[in-house]
């Protein structure tokens, strides 16, 4: 279970981008976070594994308080959170297998990493996952030879190699064509239930979000203003989520606060 309480993030001395935000995700739910550009979706996701340092508040994953961890502990804890990126963030010049195994870097010895002698168990796991998402035959290909959809599958497998307790995806389909995008979304949904893995996805495509999610969270300027089943997301709620200009809204709220 991921439990976020009173999470606040402020870049530099500006107005807060996240304002005392509370969110709990558990089970094998696929949760989509929607909201206009600048609402703070990416910031929220990156505060969870502390790619971005939260200003205050708490992030608790199955009993580990992430905000209290120090360097080494944080590194070990990050292994428990998988992350998928909009631009895939693969290492282009390495093979698909090396990219996939880089998800295990937190576990294997430096020597094994250097010589590319991965544990048998990891290789088996990698082939299973790659088979599952349909890229097993690409194991020896260089990552930059793959199409966008295939690369994002590599990204997903890399994250799953960590055997994570939760999967975060920041606009995983935004660089893909509509059809591929749907394939990736349904893959993420199926994986969530197969692996009993909670998944949080930042997404701009509301239609896709409604189709594939169990739950939708609507963000507006650092706050959650909608949190319910996809069916409950009607025009009124949409207008509420996507209304206004970020800077103005933020200044206004800041003045009140």
């Amino acid at each position: 279970m991921l439990k976020i309480t009173k999470l606040t993030k402020r870049y530099g001395s500006g107005d807060p981008v996240l304002k005392e935000l509370d969110l709990t995700v558990e089970g094998d739910q696929l949760t989509s976070v929607i909201g206009s550009s600048g609402a703070g979706k990416s910031t929220l996701l990156r505060c969870i594994n502390r790619l971005v340092e939260p200003t205050s508040g708490s992030v608790d994953l199955n009993g580990t308080e992430f905000t209290a961890l120090h360097r080494r502990e944080l590194r070990n804890a990050r292994r428990r959170i998988g992350m998928v990126f909009q631009s895939f963030n693969l290492i282009d010049r390495l093979t698909v297998m090396e990219n996939v195994q880089s998800g295990r870097l937190g576990y294997i010895s430096t020597w094994a990493a250097l010589t590319r002698r991965y544990p048998r168990e990891d290789i088996r796991h990698a082939y299973e996952l790659m088979e599952r998402v349909g890229i097993a035959h690409y194991a020896d290909r260089r990552a930059d030879e793959l199409s966008g959809g295939e690369r994002q599958r590599v990204g997903v497998v890399r994250a799953l190699m960590q055997r994570p307790e939760i999967l975060l995806a920041d606009e995983p389909t935004a660089s893909l064509d509509p059809k591929t995008s749907e394939q990736i979304m349904s893959l993420l949904r199926d994986l969530a239930s197969e692996l009993k893995l909670p998944v949080i996805i930042n997404i701009h495509n509301v239609t896709e979000a409604k189709e594939y999610s169990d739950r939708i969270v609507g963000m507006r300027y650092g706050r959650i203003i909608f949190d319910d089943k996809p069916g409950k997301l009607e025009k009124a709620e949409m207008d509420e989520i996507y209304a206004g200009v970020p800077a103005m809204d933020r200044a206004e709220v800041g003045a009140v606060a």
Binding site: R78, I91, R93
Partner: peptide, 28 residues
């Protein structure tokens, strides 16, 4: 920098990040 960040998110140590995300990029 993006692959570097991805490996940081995996919990890789600094040296392994250099090995996997930086070395391949500067090899040519």
């Amino acid at each position: 920098q993006r692959p570097v960040e991805a490996l940081e998110a995996c919990g890789a140590s600094r040296f392994k990040i250099v090995l996997y995300a930086i070395v391949p990029q500067v090899l040519p």
